[in-house]
Structures are given as C-alpha cells and as structure tokens.
Amino acid sequence: MGMDRREFIKSCSLVAMMGLLFGCRKVSLDALAAGEPGLAQFEEEVKLAISHAKRQFDLVKVARPGLLEIPGASSVNRFGMAIDLDLCDGCGKCILACNVENNVPLVPAEDAARGRFMHWIDMHGSAPFMCAHCGKAPCERVCPTGAANHTPDGLSAMMYKRCTGSRFCGANCPVQARKFNFNDARKLGLAHQFNKNIPLRDKGVMEKCSLCLHRLQDDRLKFKTSLTVGATAEEWRGRGVKTACSESCPKNAIIFGNWLDDESPLVQRTKNRVLYAPRELANLDPSVVFMRGRR
C-alpha cells in the first residue's frame, strides 16, 4: 500500500470524523440526494402549470353570497373572495404566492407532464380558480371521517390529521378543486417548508385552498387579546386580513374579505358588479365568485 502508520491513522480518523458528521445530519439521505428544492423550481413549475391551463369554466350568474344556510352559522362573518376577470391577465403570481405561503409541494416529472399539479390554485383559461368554499359543499357531506367540514365563518376547512385518504371528497367536487398527496413530498425532496407555521402534509391526505385560515386565526387571536377588547365590545370581523394570493396580485384582481361586513373591500368592490360562478357550482352557494363587466 505504501502508507505508513501515521498516514493510516490520519485517514482513519478522517473517515471517522466524516462518518460522525454525516450521521449527525438532520436532513434525510433521500432529501440530501434529491436536494431541497429552491424557489426557482417552484417558479418553473408554476410556469409549466400555466402552460397546461385547463379549459375556462362555463360561468353563470349567481346571487351575492349572504348568510350561510347551516345551523350555527355566524351572523357577522362569512369570508370569501371575488376574482375580477377584467383585471386578471393570467400572470400566475397568485399561484406562486399560494404555494410559498402554504408549503405546497412539487410533483414528480410524470405527473407534471400530464398536467397534474398539487397547486391549490389552477389556471382555467386565463383565470385562477381555487376551492370555492361552497356553503352546500358536496365534498363535506361525503367525507366519511368528518375531516372536511364547514366553519361557522364560512370556510370549508380541512383537518389533515383526521383524513384517512378515502378521496371521496375529491371525487365529489364538481370542479376537481381538491388535490391528493399521492407522494411523500418530504421524502422525495419535493417539498420546501417556506412557511414555518404551516405543516407539511403527510402522504395520503387531501388538501385544498384554506383561504389562508392561519392568517385569519392569528388575526382573531390578536383581536381577542388586544387591550381594546373589553372597551369596544366589538366582534372580530377579520378586517385587514389578506390571503396570500390577493396580496400578491399586481392588478388587485383577487379581493378577499367578509361578505357580511359592509366595510370589507370585498363588499365594496363587488357592489355594482355582476357575480359569476362556474355552472357546476352555481347551486352550491359558493363563497368565491368571479366578476366580469359592469352592471
């Protein structure tokens, strides 16, 4: 070998040190091999998704969303969004912002090639579409465990830990707004936890737009613990909260707000507009609607 004792000990200790360092790693081998995806890869995928845009929905007129028709519904809060199709130009910044805010994973190459992404917002035609948080949600009534349910505030909520992956909700959504975690994104190195407050979902659960529930929760908590609570006896109305997509839209085409609050930008900007929804959802009392043209 030609190695003397000293060099041998040096190389052994070097190997041992490398082994220890390697063993101390917090990142799994697979992720290390795959590499944690960076923002650039997410941007690439959003561009790919836009190029795979599905057909535009058949839109029909809907009435303005009002009080929720479920027992125990809040009489002051019903959160929703309106997307102004006149302003939207299909740039896709909302999709990227949503993915970053909610730690939405990438998908493997074969799925991307077939146009199946995990994005909570999909492009239909040149308009973004996400879960409409229907008041009479078909997904919630067929979920066997109750993981898909409705909050009194009008959000179609998802409990990841209660999901058993039966995918009945996904089958019953008339517009396929729900996504299923076919893969363990963490293990395959397809996920990046941009937002530390949001968990990465396990393999086998369904997910969809949550109307940035976490932002609403944080705002509610701040409101409840603020010093003015006892003094003003007001209720929390979610004023000032914006979802990630509405925040990121350069044209302000996505408006988030409270349908039951007259001061909410949602109510004010939809005052004189005609509201539309996809034909399949028109009878299901959607909270997320489209706007086009003037009254």
Binding site: R162, S166, R167, D202, V205
Partner: peptide
C-alpha cells in the same frame, strides 16, 4: 387498501 392512510380506517 384503497385508503390513503390505512391506519386511520377506524375513523370511518
């Protein structure tokens, strides 16, 4: 087999 998370089957 169909379930995404088999060990949660009891929730049904």
């Amino acid at each position: 087999v169909h379930l995404g998370i088999v060990e949660n089957f009891y929730m049904v």
